[in-house]
Design a protein around this nucleic acid. Sequence first.
DNA 1: GATAAGATGTTATATCGTAACATCCTATAG
DNA 2: CTATAGGATGTTACGATATAACATCTTATC
Lengths: 160, 160
Amino acid sequence: MANNTDGQTKRTSTFREKMIFAEQYCAKNDLQFTPVRRKVLELLLKSDRALGAYELLDLLREVGFKPQPPVAYRALEFLIKYGFAHKVEHLNAFVACIHPGKEHSPAFMICRSCDSVSEMDTLRSDSMLAENLISQGFKVEEAVIEARGLCEACADVEVK
Amino acid sequence: MANNTDGQTKRTSTFREKMIFAEQYCAKNDLQFTPVRRKVLELLLKSDRALGAYELLDLLREVGFKPQPPVAYRALEFLIKYGFAHKVEHLNAFVACIHPGKEHSPAFMICRSCDSVSEMDTLRSDSMLAENLISQGFKVEEAVIEARGLCEACADVEVK
DNA sequence: GATAAGATGTTATATCGTAACATCCTATAG
DNA sequence: CTATAGGATGTTACGATATAACATCTTATC
Ligand SMILES: [Zn+2]
Ligand SMILES: [Zn+2]
Ligand SMILES: [Zn+2]
Ligand SMILES: [Zn+2]
């Protein structure tokens, strides 16, 4: 989680930074960062797994909302549209973006053992892929890359 | 479709080759290439779009089968397991593989205008991606790449 | 306080996918 | 020629994911 001495602090800090960024981005662009939208983003940021829409609905109910499915889907639609979250197609589930505000197509690493989902740090995959496909006559506008396998921690455990 | 003088012939030929390959592969490996499985593969091969499971069910009914959903899903499961077809996650739909028998993770180009789905010719994307992610400590076992954009034909039309 | 735009509440339903169990079909063994 | 076992299919019933459509509320602006 962190390469400083206190994982929790590091994580909380990152979480706060992301929430503040979303706050400011919305203010700047006349977008309403409403309670449901804020809470859904919070829940996604706090999870290291991708969360399904109905899972989010349950979590929202636990904190006092009484939402029907469209509420979750609309919040997710907003977060995805403005780059705060992504959908992981292979899981029909959703994650917070690790670098919101930067134009990019996401690439995910999904661990089959612990179900963790992490977004690639680099944005290189975009250009790699685009160049490759353009040579085949296809004009890429958006791409989804989802790799399944073992995360570092789970690979270490499986050393047998 | 073809760079010979008769697109239909070329396509039919490819279609036949793929069916014969499946036939022989199943015979060699003690797999049953049953009527439903054969028909589903035929339908996928003849389509340039990805087909949903319920769409396949309708098509099967048109040719005399009377299948319930599990029938289609089981045929697809078989075809995917042995490399004759892939699922396009972004569409919740299925396509025939263009190079069955070769171990690979598929990469798709999905046209937003005509809905055509084509699989990448090369298998390079596999190694590209794996190398990239391994450097981040993730061991890729399988990957899904789905690019959305414009196919060559539709890009030409949109020249405005 | 009227108006309009956007957000949310609510119902109902569409779409995608699977668990579970019955039945059939085809080997190969006794 | 049964028996029995495995794989394939038929069938019912449901679970999980997602959206259409319309009512209501909130907020900002005029
Ligand atoms: Zn991202
Ligand atoms: Zn893991
Ligand atoms: Zn393929
Ligand atoms: Zn096209």
